[in-house]
Amino acid sequence: MSELFLIFEMNGYGFFIWSAYGVWFVLLILLFLKVLLRKKEINRKLKYLIEKNDGFEE
């Protein structure tokens, strides 16, 4: 338990180190989600339009 505490405490600099890693992680996850959700939404719209146009041509 005390070893775990030492790892997180980082000689008194834990707040700065873990905050930096936290910000890095959260921003990357948000970026990842934004990129993937945009792709999903565009693919949904494209699929709908392709189906609609195919039906129109028939």
């Binding site: 970026l31 990842f32 990129v35 993937l36 945009r38 792709k39 565009i42 693919n43 719209k45 494209l46 339009l49 392709i50 146009n53």
Partner: peptide, 20 residues
């Protein structure tokens, strides 16, 4: 990976514009 995914989305967006 993120840039390539965005580029694919942008290409698909152009297709949507054309179809619309």
């Amino acid at each position: 990976y993120l840039i390539f995914t965005n580029i694919q989305s942008a290409i698909a967006e152009k297709k949507i514009l054309f179809l619309s």
